[in-house]
């Protein structure tokens, strides 16, 4: 029997299929979010299933999570990305106490208790400056690809100081820096630092270790180091950081005795 977790994030859709016994990932996939969310998710699901040779009838339960979680009519139930993120992260990092998740349009810091249950969490509420969106804005401004900018930051000799608290205002600040001859590498490093600082200030006090870094932005070179500095903690990037929420959803689908099993129909 297979179990599926589907994470309908603000930018991408991710699906993870696990084997109910071993709880190992048997297949996974990601696709950019389109206008027809449900259709794209449907296509992706078919694709992910295809690799396993299984059919829909072999899938026991499907849990949807993420912003678009209510858009999928064929999911058995929905669970928030916070609970899923916690569950998925714990799989690879059972001792995790803090999860820093930075995605395309939102970021969150989740603290877990000793048993791995969600104790508290904060999310950025109304601003893009602590999210991957900020990196995108800068990449566009510098006319570089999103993959490229991280590697550029690694070459920076110093980080520019970006003081604007808002990603939109920071953009004009960056224009000014470029005009003043600041190397783009330093600007990217500055942006990474600024994102890390925003997320750390959102988290408030000192967070408990181990701190696990998830979300698409965890894959951007330089971010881990920027976060470590801002949080004054060691940071571990999760295994497959983009898939942790989808994995958590799949695990919740599989585990009847798990945290949220009561709500599964």
């Amino acid at each position: 029997m297979l179990f599926a977790g589907i994470d309908l994030g603000s930018r991408t859709i991710k699906i993870v299929l696990i084997d109910g016994n071993g709880k190992d990932i048997v297949s996974s996939g990601a696709v950019d979010q389109g206008i027809k969310q449900s259709e794209r998710a449907d296509e992706l699901f078919e694709k992910v299933l295809f690799y396993t040779g299984a059919s829909r009838a072999d899938v026991g339960k499907i849990v949807a999570t993420g912003y678009g979680r209510n858009a999928i009519s064929w999911a058995d139930t929905t669970v928030t990305e916070i609970t899923c993120q916690a569950r998925g992260t714990r799989q690879g990092h059972p001792d995790a106490r803090t999860i820093v998740d930075i995605g395309g349009q939102d970021s969150k810091v989740i603290s877990l208790d000793k048993n791995g249950a969600v104790r508290d969490f904060v999310m950025n509420d109304r601003c893009a400056s602590g999210t991957g969106r900020f990196i995108e804005i800068v990449a566009q401004r510098l006319e570089r690809g999103i993959d490229e900018v991280g590697f550029m930051a690694a070459r920076a000799v110093g980080a520019s100081i970006i003081s604007s608290m808002c990603a939109v205002f920071a953009e004009s600040e960056i224009v000014g820096l470029l005009a003043a001859g600041e190397p783009p590498e330093n600007i990217i490093a500055g942006v990474e630092k600024s994102i890390a600082k925003r997320v750390a200030s959102m988290a408030g006090r000192k967070v408990e270790e181990p701190v696990i870094f998830t979300g698409g932005v965890a894959l951007v070179p330089g971010m881990k180091e920027a976060l470590a500095e801002a949080f004054e903690s060691a940071i571990t990037v999760a295994e497959r950081p983009r898939l942790t929420a989808a994995l958590g959803a799949a695990l919740l689908a599989a585990g009847r005795s798990e945290i949220y099993a009561k709500n599964i129909k």
Binding site: Y67, T80, I82, T83, A117, V118, F121, M123, I259, N263
Partner: peptide, 9 residues
């Protein structure tokens, strides 16, 4: 989302 996650907890 935050409220729902709280209730899940």
């Amino acid at each position: 989302v935050r409220v729902e996650a709280l209730f899940e907890t």
